[in-house]
Amino acid sequence: MTFLALSTSVHRYESSGIHTGMWLGEFTHFYDALTGAGHEVTLASVDGGAVPIDPVSLKTPVIQMGGTNKRYEDPEFMALLDDTPAIGEVNLAAFDGIYLIGGHGTMFDFPTEPVARAVAHFADAGKIVSAVCHGPCGLLGVPLASGETLLHGRRATGYSWTEEKLANRTDEVPFSLEDKLRAEAGEYTKAKVPMTKHVVVDGKLITCQNPMSATGVGEAVVELLRA
């Protein structure tokens, strides 16, 4: 099976200019879970080209990364981030599902038409749609062929406002993802303790709350691919 992973292309916050981007561990842990089970993962980004990495994701302690991030020191692996295809140029039919990688950059370019079109393609085809942390920004307002939006009546999770406060990013982000998910989804849940693993599986929709959940979403995807 071949899975499509999607990254943000945004490398700075609009308000301050502080660097942001993809949260690297949320890609590496998912990648390891799927490739370890014999599946392939192709990385794309919203605009194409080099993928920006949130520098905080390289400094966060191991316990918050969700595991040791040895991939950053692997040149062959990191080359995957050097020149990615733009999501609008990807042959979506070639993939068995999509994974929306988190990172604060997603809050600016995931709630856009090219991402919504890609996500809808997989949902309408009955394929797996998965997202972690801020990745669910790409699930907001996605229109389906049925006339409903993707999250209507569905169970979901995503980065909580409490976690946003802990990350000291409440003044940088354009909205509260928790509030958006509560308004759109049938049910939003979160871990009792912030920054701990929380994975929600609703059919072929898999959402996870934070970086500590990245391996969990990979494991959940592997289970669905076995079905």
Rank of each mutant, 00 (worst) to 15 (best):
I53W: 04
T28R: 03
A185P: 04
F108D: 13
E89L: 12
V173S: 02
W23M: 13
G102W: 05
A227C: 00
V221A: 02
D109W: 04
Q209A: 12
P55A: 05
R155C: 13
D83K: 14
E184I: 13
G17E: 08
L140Y: 05
L150W: 05
E14N: 06
K59M: 13
T42V: 15
V201N: 00
A125I: 11
D32E: 13
D171I: 07
N210E: 04
P211H: 05
E40I: 02
N69Y: 07
P61Y: 03
S146G: 07
P75K: 11
F27V: 14
F3Y: 09
P75W: 11
L58V: 06
K70T: 09
I98L: 12
Q209E: 15
V193P: 04
T112F: 06
Q64P: 01
V217R: 04
A93D: 14
T8V: 08
M78D: 02
K180N: 07
T106E: 00
A125S: 11
K165V: 11
K59P: 01
N168F: 10
E164A: 05
M65R: 10
L92Q: 08
V132N: 06
T207H: 01
A156P: 07
I63Y: 08
D124H: 05
A131K: 00
A116H: 08
A50P: 02
P174E: 10
C133Q: 08
T20S: 08
V62Q: 13
A214E: 07
D202G: 05
G216S: 09
K127R: 15
L140P: 09
L81Y: 10
I128M: 03
R169E: 11
H11V: 02
E76T: 15
N168L: 10
V199D: 10
P61Q: 04
L225Y: 05
R155F: 03
I101K: 06
A220R: 03
P111S: 00
L140V: 12
T106H: 00
G153I: 11
S15D: 08
A94C: 05
P136G: 11
S9A: 09
T196I: 13
V62M: 14
H134W: 03
A227P: 00
V222C: 04
T215K: 07
H134L: 06
I18N: 02
P211G: 08
G102D: 06
A94H: 09
L58D: 00
T68S: 01
L4F: 05
S160V: 12
H152R: 12
G147H: 11
M195S: 01
E223F: 02
L166G: 15
I63C: 09
D171H: 10
A183F: 02
V132T: 10
R155V: 13
N168C: 05
I18K: 08
P52S: 10
L6F: 06
